[in-house]
Design a protein around this nucleic acid. Structure first.
Lengths: 198, 198
DNA sequence: TTTTTTGATTTATGTACACTAATCAAAAGT
DNA sequence: ACTTTTGATTAGTGTACATAAATCAAAAAA
Protein backbone atom coordinates (compact mmCIF):
# COMPACT_ATOMS: atom_id res chain seq x y z
CA UNK A 1 0.00 0.00 0.00
CA UNK A 2 1.33 3.35 -0.97
CA UNK A 3 0.79 6.80 0.39
CA UNK A 4 -1.24 7.62 -2.70
CA UNK A 5 -3.98 5.06 -2.10
CA UNK A 6 -4.24 5.77 1.62
CA UNK A 7 -7.83 6.96 1.82
CA UNK A 8 -8.07 8.22 5.38
CA UNK A 9 -6.83 11.74 4.98
CA UNK A 10 -8.85 14.77 4.05
CA UNK A 11 -12.54 15.33 3.74
CA UNK A 12 -14.78 12.33 3.44
CA UNK A 13 -18.41 13.19 2.64
CA UNK A 14 -20.97 10.90 4.16
CA UNK A 15 -18.84 9.96 7.08
CA UNK A 16 -19.41 11.03 10.62
CA UNK A 17 -22.34 11.52 12.85
CA UNK A 18 -25.51 12.20 10.93
CA UNK A 19 -27.26 15.51 10.99
CA UNK A 20 -30.41 15.42 13.02
CA UNK A 21 -29.01 12.72 15.24
CA UNK A 22 -29.51 14.78 18.33
CA UNK A 23 -32.04 13.72 20.95
CA UNK A 24 -34.42 16.24 19.45
CA UNK A 25 -33.81 15.32 15.84
CA UNK A 26 -32.99 18.90 15.05
CA UNK A 27 -30.32 21.49 15.73
CA UNK A 28 -30.17 23.11 19.13
CA UNK A 29 -29.08 26.44 20.49
CA UNK A 30 -27.62 27.33 23.85
CA UNK A 31 -29.94 29.56 25.83
CA UNK A 32 -29.55 31.02 29.29
CA UNK A 33 -32.50 30.22 31.52
CA UNK A 34 -33.16 31.63 34.99
CA UNK A 35 -33.15 29.03 37.74
CA UNK A 36 -36.83 29.47 38.51
CA UNK A 37 -37.72 28.48 34.97
CA UNK A 38 -35.17 25.72 34.77
CA UNK A 39 -37.53 22.99 35.94
CA UNK A 40 -40.24 24.14 33.57
CA UNK A 41 -37.95 24.33 30.58
CA UNK A 42 -36.33 21.04 31.44
CA UNK A 43 -39.69 19.33 31.58
CA UNK A 44 -40.54 20.89 28.23
CA UNK A 45 -37.33 19.49 26.82
CA UNK A 46 -37.90 16.06 28.33
CA UNK A 47 -41.32 15.92 26.76
CA UNK A 48 -39.93 17.00 23.45
CA UNK A 49 -37.41 14.19 23.67
CA UNK A 50 -40.13 11.64 24.39
CA UNK A 51 -42.26 13.05 21.63
CA UNK A 52 -39.38 12.81 19.21
CA UNK A 53 -38.69 9.27 20.30
CA UNK A 54 -42.30 8.27 19.79
CA UNK A 55 -42.46 9.91 16.42
CA UNK A 56 -39.43 7.99 15.32
CA UNK A 57 -40.88 4.78 16.71
CA UNK A 58 -44.21 5.25 15.02
CA UNK A 59 -42.97 6.37 11.66
CA UNK A 60 -39.56 4.84 11.04
CA UNK A 61 -39.70 5.34 7.29
CA UNK A 62 -41.43 8.66 7.16
CA UNK A 63 -39.65 11.95 7.02
CA UNK A 64 -40.86 14.52 9.46
CA UNK A 65 -42.84 17.26 7.75
CA UNK A 66 -41.43 20.71 7.65
CA UNK A 67 -43.20 22.42 10.49
CA UNK A 68 -41.68 25.79 9.80
CA UNK A 69 -44.78 26.67 7.85
CA UNK A 70 -46.99 29.68 8.29
CA UNK A 71 -49.58 27.70 10.25
CA UNK A 72 -50.06 29.54 13.54
CA UNK A 73 -49.48 27.08 16.30
CA UNK A 74 -51.09 27.35 19.65
CA UNK A 75 -49.27 25.27 22.20
CA UNK A 76 -51.34 22.74 24.00
CA UNK A 77 -50.06 21.57 27.33
CA UNK A 78 -51.79 18.30 27.92
CA UNK A 79 -49.85 17.69 31.05
CA UNK A 80 -51.54 17.09 34.31
CA UNK A 81 -52.10 20.40 35.93
CA UNK A 82 -52.34 19.22 39.50
CA UNK A 83 -49.44 16.84 39.52
CA UNK A 84 -47.05 18.48 37.11
CA UNK A 85 -45.73 17.04 33.91
CA UNK A 86 -44.61 13.52 34.64
CA UNK A 87 -47.54 11.61 33.24
CA UNK A 88 -46.21 10.05 30.03
CA UNK A 89 -49.59 9.66 28.39
CA UNK A 90 -50.28 13.36 28.39
CA UNK A 91 -47.63 14.63 26.12
CA UNK A 92 -46.80 18.13 25.26
CA UNK A 93 -48.27 18.62 21.85
CA UNK A 94 -46.99 21.40 19.75
CA UNK A 95 -49.61 21.88 17.16
CA UNK A 96 -52.57 24.01 16.46
CA UNK A 97 -55.67 23.13 18.32
CA UNK A 98 -58.71 24.18 16.39
CA UNK A 99 -61.45 24.81 18.86
CA UNK A 100 -64.09 24.50 16.18
CA UNK A 101 -62.71 21.13 15.33
CA UNK A 102 -62.42 20.15 18.96
CA UNK A 103 -65.92 21.11 19.96
CA UNK A 104 -67.99 20.74 16.82
CA UNK A 105 -68.08 17.32 15.30
CA UNK A 106 -71.16 17.99 13.18
CA UNK A 107 -71.42 21.63 12.18
CA UNK A 108 -74.76 21.15 10.48
CA UNK A 109 -76.49 19.97 13.63
CA UNK A 110 -74.64 22.06 16.18
CA UNK A 111 -75.79 25.25 17.82
CA UNK A 112 -75.04 27.28 20.89
CA UNK A 113 -77.10 28.32 23.86
CA UNK A 114 -76.23 30.63 26.67
CA UNK A 115 -77.10 29.07 29.98
CA UNK A 116 -79.10 30.80 32.69
CA UNK A 117 -79.67 29.93 36.30
CA UNK A 118 -77.82 27.69 38.66
CA UNK A 119 -79.76 24.50 38.35
CA UNK A 120 -76.94 22.68 36.61
CA UNK A 121 -73.93 23.72 38.64
CA UNK A 122 -73.19 20.09 39.39
CA UNK A 123 -72.66 19.42 35.70
CA UNK A 124 -70.27 22.31 35.45
CA UNK A 125 -72.82 24.59 33.85
CA UNK A 126 -72.76 28.09 35.31
CA UNK A 127 -74.98 31.03 34.45
CA UNK A 128 -73.65 32.81 31.40
CA UNK A 129 -71.83 29.78 30.07
CA UNK A 130 -72.03 28.99 26.40
CA UNK A 131 -73.32 25.51 25.68
CA UNK A 132 -72.38 23.57 22.60
CA UNK A 133 -75.43 21.56 21.62
CA UNK A 134 -75.64 18.78 19.08
CA UNK A 135 -79.08 17.98 17.74
CA UNK A 136 -77.95 14.80 16.08
CA UNK A 137 -76.98 13.10 19.34
CA UNK A 138 -79.66 10.85 20.73
CA UNK A 139 -81.18 12.23 23.90
CA UNK A 140 -80.79 9.13 26.01
CA UNK A 141 -81.24 8.91 29.72
CA UNK A 142 -78.20 10.35 31.41
CA UNK A 143 -77.53 12.99 28.80
CA UNK A 144 -77.66 16.69 29.50
CA UNK A 145 -80.26 18.09 27.15
CA UNK A 146 -81.50 21.47 26.07
CA UNK A 147 -85.24 21.40 25.79
CA UNK A 148 -88.11 23.74 25.41
CA UNK A 149 -90.63 23.07 28.12
CA UNK A 150 -93.86 24.93 27.63
CA UNK A 151 -92.04 27.54 25.63
CA UNK A 152 -89.19 27.96 28.06
CA UNK A 153 -85.68 26.80 27.36
CA UNK A 154 -84.13 24.65 30.03
CA UNK A 155 -81.01 22.67 30.47
CA UNK A 156 -81.34 19.55 32.56
CA UNK A 157 -80.17 16.01 32.76
CA UNK A 158 -82.51 13.42 31.43
CA UNK A 159 -83.14 10.76 34.06
CA UNK A 160 -85.45 7.88 34.66
CA UNK A 161 -87.03 7.82 38.09
CA UNK A 162 -89.55 5.20 39.02
CA UNK A 163 -90.08 4.30 35.44
CA UNK A 164 -90.82 7.82 34.35
CA UNK A 165 -88.66 10.33 32.51
CA UNK A 166 -87.74 13.43 34.45
CA UNK A 167 -85.67 16.51 33.76
CA UNK A 168 -83.27 16.42 36.66
CA UNK A 169 -81.28 19.45 37.77
CA UNK A 170 -77.71 18.96 38.94
CA UNK A 171 -78.31 21.02 42.06
CA UNK A 172 -80.06 19.74 45.20
CA UNK A 173 -81.85 23.03 45.66
CA UNK A 174 -83.88 22.49 42.53
CA UNK A 175 -86.68 19.97 42.08
CA UNK A 176 -87.02 17.40 39.35
CA UNK A 177 -89.39 18.25 36.56
CA UNK A 178 -91.63 15.34 35.60
CA UNK A 179 -92.46 14.95 31.96
CA UNK A 180 -96.22 14.77 31.92
CA UNK A 181 -98.15 13.65 28.94
CA UNK A 182 -99.72 17.01 28.39
CA UNK A 183 -96.61 19.10 28.71
CA UNK A 184 -95.20 20.52 25.57
CA UNK A 185 -91.70 19.23 25.68
CA UNK A 186 -89.31 19.41 22.77
CA UNK A 187 -85.74 18.36 23.11
CA UNK A 188 -83.59 20.64 21.07
CA UNK A 189 -80.39 18.74 21.47
CA UNK A 190 -77.72 17.23 23.70
CA UNK A 191 -75.12 19.36 25.39
CA UNK A 192 -71.67 18.18 24.36
CA UNK A 193 -69.48 20.92 25.79
CA UNK A 194 -69.64 23.85 28.15
CA UNK A 195 -67.65 27.00 27.63
CA UNK A 196 -67.22 28.77 30.92
CA UNK A 197 -65.77 32.21 31.27
CA UNK A 198 -63.67 32.48 34.38
CA UNK B 1 1.34 57.63 48.78
CA UNK B 2 3.13 54.39 49.39
CA UNK B 3 2.53 50.95 48.07
CA UNK B 4 1.26 49.96 51.51
CA UNK B 5 -1.70 52.33 51.49
CA UNK B 6 -2.66 51.63 47.90
CA UNK B 7 -6.16 50.25 48.38
CA UNK B 8 -6.99 49.02 44.93
CA UNK B 9 -5.34 45.64 44.96
CA UNK B 10 -6.77 42.39 46.23
CA UNK B 11 -10.25 41.41 47.27
CA UNK B 12 -12.71 44.16 48.08
CA UNK B 13 -15.98 42.86 49.53
CA UNK B 14 -19.06 44.82 48.57
CA UNK B 15 -17.63 46.05 45.33
CA UNK B 16 -18.76 45.00 41.91
CA UNK B 17 -22.01 44.17 40.26
CA UNK B 18 -24.66 43.09 42.71
CA UNK B 19 -25.97 39.58 42.87
CA UNK B 20 -29.41 39.24 41.40
CA UNK B 21 -28.81 42.10 39.00
CA UNK B 22 -29.60 39.99 35.99
CA UNK B 23 -32.68 40.64 33.91
CA UNK B 24 -34.35 37.81 35.77
CA UNK B 25 -33.18 38.83 39.22
CA UNK B 26 -31.68 35.43 39.73
CA UNK B 27 -28.84 33.28 38.46
CA UNK B 28 -29.13 31.64 35.06
CA UNK B 29 -27.89 28.49 33.47
CA UNK B 30 -27.04 27.76 29.85
CA UNK B 31 -29.35 25.17 28.35
CA UNK B 32 -29.50 23.75 24.87
CA UNK B 33 -32.92 24.06 23.31
CA UNK B 34 -34.07 22.53 20.02
CA UNK B 35 -35.02 25.05 17.38
CA UNK B 36 -38.67 24.03 17.36
CA UNK B 37 -39.00 24.93 21.02
CA UNK B 38 -36.90 28.04 20.76
CA UNK B 39 -39.86 30.32 20.20
CA UNK B 40 -41.78 28.83 23.09
CA UNK B 41 -38.87 29.06 25.47
CA UNK B 42 -38.02 32.56 24.32
CA UNK B 43 -41.57 33.63 24.94
CA UNK B 44 -41.37 32.13 28.38
CA UNK B 45 -38.19 34.03 29.05
CA UNK B 46 -39.59 37.30 27.75
CA UNK B 47 -42.60 36.82 29.92
CA UNK B 48 -40.39 36.19 32.92
CA UNK B 49 -38.48 39.36 32.20
CA UNK B 50 -41.66 41.40 32.02
CA UNK B 51 -42.94 39.77 35.13
CA UNK B 52 -39.76 40.68 36.94
CA UNK B 53 -40.00 44.25 35.74
CA UNK B 54 -43.61 44.50 36.81
CA UNK B 55 -42.87 43.04 40.19
CA UNK B 56 -40.36 45.76 40.74
CA UNK B 57 -42.58 48.52 39.46
CA UNK B 58 -45.88 47.47 40.97
CA UNK B 59 -46.96 47.63 44.52
CA UNK B 60 -49.04 44.74 45.83
CA UNK B 61 -52.02 47.03 46.25
CA UNK B 62 -52.15 48.28 42.71
CA UNK B 63 -54.95 46.88 40.67
CA UNK B 64 -54.79 47.08 36.95
CA UNK B 65 -58.01 47.67 35.07
CA UNK B 66 -60.09 44.60 34.58
CA UNK B 67 -59.73 43.72 30.95
CA UNK B 68 -62.46 41.12 31.02
CA UNK B 69 -64.58 42.67 28.37
CA UNK B 70 -68.05 41.48 27.59
CA UNK B 71 -68.35 38.65 25.16
CA UNK B 72 -69.12 40.10 21.76
CA UNK B 73 -72.75 39.80 20.94
CA UNK B 74 -73.34 36.25 19.93
CA UNK B 75 -76.29 35.08 17.91
CA UNK B 76 -77.22 32.56 20.53
CA UNK B 77 -80.50 31.46 21.84
CA UNK B 78 -80.98 32.74 25.32
CA UNK B 79 -83.66 31.42 27.55
CA UNK B 80 -85.75 34.50 26.99
CA UNK B 81 -85.52 34.22 23.26
CA UNK B 82 -86.71 30.69 23.40
CA UNK B 83 -90.09 31.72 24.77
CA UNK B 84 -91.09 32.68 21.29
CA UNK B 85 -90.09 29.24 20.19
CA UNK B 86 -89.84 29.81 16.49
CA UNK B 87 -88.85 27.26 13.95
CA UNK B 88 -85.40 26.50 15.19
CA UNK B 89 -83.82 25.29 12.03
CA UNK B 90 -83.56 28.48 10.00
CA UNK B 91 -82.28 30.86 12.55
CA UNK B 92 -79.00 29.48 13.67
CA UNK B 93 -77.76 27.94 10.49
CA UNK B 94 -76.82 31.27 9.00
CA UNK B 95 -75.34 32.55 12.21
CA UNK B 96 -72.39 30.34 12.85
CA UNK B 97 -70.00 31.16 15.59
CA UNK B 98 -66.29 30.80 15.28
CA UNK B 99 -65.20 29.39 18.60
CA UNK B 100 -61.60 30.27 17.91
CA UNK B 101 -62.60 33.86 17.50
CA UNK B 102 -64.79 33.73 20.57
CA UNK B 103 -62.25 32.22 22.89
CA UNK B 104 -58.93 33.38 21.51
CA UNK B 105 -58.43 37.09 21.39
CA UNK B 106 -54.67 36.94 21.13
CA UNK B 107 -53.47 33.80 19.39
CA UNK B 108 -49.82 34.61 19.95
CA UNK B 109 -50.18 34.64 23.69
CA UNK B 110 -52.78 31.92 24.04
CA UNK B 111 -52.27 28.32 24.92
CA UNK B 112 -54.29 25.45 26.28
CA UNK B 113 -53.91 23.31 29.33
CA UNK B 114 -55.82 20.25 30.31
CA UNK B 115 -56.86 20.51 33.92
CA UNK B 116 -56.56 17.79 36.48
CA UNK B 117 -57.71 17.46 40.03
CA UNK B 118 -60.69 18.90 41.75
CA UNK B 119 -59.18 21.84 43.54
CA UNK B 120 -60.94 24.37 41.31
CA UNK B 121 -64.43 22.95 41.08
CA UNK B 122 -65.83 26.16 42.50
CA UNK B 123 -64.51 28.08 39.52
CA UNK B 124 -66.14 25.65 37.15
CA UNK B 125 -62.91 23.82 36.40
CA UNK B 126 -63.35 20.08 36.38
CA UNK B 127 -60.74 17.42 35.80
CA UNK B 128 -60.21 16.87 32.11
CA UNK B 129 -61.38 20.32 31.13
CA UNK B 130 -59.43 22.27 28.55
CA UNK B 131 -58.36 25.65 29.83
CA UNK B 132 -57.85 28.59 27.51
CA UNK B 133 -54.96 30.57 28.93
CA UNK B 134 -53.83 34.02 27.89
CA UNK B 135 -50.32 34.97 28.76
CA UNK B 136 -50.84 38.60 27.95
CA UNK B 137 -53.52 39.15 30.58
CA UNK B 138 -52.18 40.65 33.76
CA UNK B 139 -52.25 38.21 36.62
CA UNK B 140 -54.01 40.41 39.11
CA UNK B 141 -55.46 39.39 42.40
CA UNK B 142 -58.73 37.61 41.73
CA UNK B 143 -57.70 36.01 38.48
CA UNK B 144 -57.48 32.31 37.95
CA UNK B 145 -53.92 31.65 36.92
CA UNK B 146 -51.92 28.77 35.59
CA UNK B 147 -48.57 28.74 37.26
CA UNK B 148 -45.57 26.55 37.70
CA UNK B 149 -44.86 26.19 41.37
CA UNK B 150 -41.54 24.52 42.03
CA UNK B 151 -41.80 22.95 38.62
CA UNK B 152 -45.36 21.76 39.04
CA UNK B 153 -48.22 23.15 37.04
CA UNK B 154 -51.18 24.32 39.05
CA UNK B 155 -54.38 26.20 38.47
CA UNK B 156 -55.46 28.40 41.33
CA UNK B 157 -57.05 31.75 42.01
CA UNK B 158 -54.65 34.51 42.96
CA UNK B 159 -55.79 36.08 46.22
CA UNK B 160 -54.45 38.48 48.75
CA UNK B 161 -54.84 37.30 52.32
CA UNK B 162 -53.52 39.37 55.19
CA UNK B 163 -51.37 41.33 52.82
CA UNK B 164 -49.75 38.30 51.29
CA UNK B 165 -50.35 36.68 47.95
CA UNK B 166 -51.71 33.17 48.05
CA UNK B 167 -52.74 30.61 45.45
CA UNK B 168 -56.24 29.83 46.54
CA UNK B 169 -58.11 26.74 45.45
CA UNK B 170 -61.82 27.00 44.78
CA UNK B 171 -62.63 24.00 46.89
CA UNK B 172 -62.87 24.00 50.71
CA UNK B 173 -61.15 20.64 50.87
CA UNK B 174 -57.92 22.09 49.58
CA UNK B 175 -55.59 24.44 51.47
CA UNK B 176 -54.26 27.77 50.29
CA UNK B 177 -50.73 27.79 48.97
CA UNK B 178 -48.76 30.73 50.32
CA UNK B 179 -46.25 32.29 47.99
CA UNK B 180 -43.09 32.25 50.01
CA UNK B 181 -40.01 34.11 49.04
CA UNK B 182 -38.10 30.96 48.33
CA UNK B 183 -40.78 29.28 46.28
CA UNK B 184 -40.16 29.04 42.58
CA UNK B 185 -43.36 30.45 41.20
CA UNK B 186 -43.87 31.41 37.61
CA UNK B 187 -47.23 32.53 36.37
CA UNK B 188 -47.80 31.13 32.92
CA UNK B 189 -50.96 32.98 32.22
CA UNK B 190 -54.51 33.80 33.15
CA UNK B 191 -57.34 31.37 32.49
CA UNK B 192 -59.89 33.10 30.31
CA UNK B 193 -62.19 30.21 29.50
CA UNK B 194 -62.91 26.68 30.54
CA UNK B 195 -64.10 24.07 28.09
CA UNK B 196 -65.95 21.37 29.91
CA UNK B 197 -67.08 18.15 28.33
CA UNK B 198 -70.41 17.05 29.66
C1' DT C 1 -15.67 -14.97 3.07
C1' DT C 2 -17.48 -12.52 7.20
C1' DT C 3 -16.63 -10.17 11.46
C1' DT C 4 -14.07 -7.13 14.38
C1' DT C 5 -10.99 -3.51 15.15
C1' DT C 6 -9.25 0.86 14.36
C1' DG C 7 -8.53 5.65 12.49
C1' DA C 8 -10.71 9.42 10.45
C1' DT C 9 -14.39 12.35 10.04
C1' DT C 10 -18.51 14.77 11.15
C1' DT C 11 -22.09 16.42 14.26
C1' DA C 12 -23.76 17.13 19.04
C1' DT C 13 -23.31 19.13 23.60
C1' DG C 14 -21.97 21.03 28.13
C1' DT C 15 -19.53 24.57 29.94
C1' DA C 16 -15.29 27.40 30.41
C1' DC C 17 -14.00 31.66 29.18
C1' DA C 18 -13.73 36.05 27.19
C1' DC C 19 -16.18 39.83 27.26
C1' DT C 20 -19.78 43.03 29.15
C1' DA C 21 -22.25 45.39 32.74
C1' DA C 22 -22.51 47.10 37.30
C1' DT C 23 -20.75 48.82 41.31
C1' DC C 24 -17.58 50.93 44.75
C1' DA C 25 -14.19 54.03 46.32
C1' DA C 26 -9.92 56.38 45.59
C1' DA C 27 -8.10 60.11 42.95
C1' DA C 28 -8.50 63.98 40.40
C1' DG C 29 -10.83 67.91 39.09
C1' DT C 30 -13.87 72.08 40.11
C1' DA D 1 -16.85 70.35 49.83
C1' DC D 2 -18.69 68.47 46.00
C1' DT D 3 -18.57 66.24 41.47
C1' DT D 4 -16.37 63.59 37.95
C1' DT D 5 -13.13 60.37 36.45
C1' DT D 6 -10.81 56.20 36.72
C1' DG D 7 -9.12 51.57 38.25
C1' DA D 8 -10.41 47.54 40.57
C1' DT D 9 -13.61 44.20 41.60
C1' DT D 10 -17.53 41.30 41.13
C1' DA D 11 -21.52 39.26 38.66
C1' DG D 12 -23.91 38.42 34.20
C1' DT D 13 -24.00 36.58 29.44
C1' DG D 14 -23.27 34.75 24.75
C1' DT D 15 -20.79 31.52 22.39
C1' DA D 16 -16.32 29.28 21.07
C1' DC D 17 -14.28 25.30 22.00
C1' DA D 18 -12.93 20.96 23.92
C1' DT D 19 -14.83 16.76 24.39
C1' DA D 20 -18.15 13.18 23.38
C1' DA D 21 -20.96 10.53 20.31
C1' DA D 22 -21.94 8.65 15.90
C1' DT D 23 -20.76 7.00 11.69
C1' DC D 24 -18.06 5.15 7.71
C1' DA D 25 -14.71 2.41 5.60
C1' DA D 26 -10.10 0.51 5.54
C1' DA D 27 -7.43 -2.97 7.70
C1' DA D 28 -6.91 -6.84 10.44
C1' DA D 29 -8.59 -10.93 12.29
C1' DA D 30 -11.32 -15.04 12.23
Amino acid sequence: MTEDTFKRGGSRPGAGRKKGSSVYGEPTKAVRVPESLLATVTELLEHKKKQTAEEIMNHPDVFLPDLDGPIPSIPFYGASVAAGFPSPADDFIEKRLDLNELLISKPASTFFVRAEGESMLGAGIHPGDVLVVDRSVNANVGKVVVCALDGELTVKRLRSKEGKLVLSPENPEYPDIPLNEGAEMVIWGVVTSVIHNV
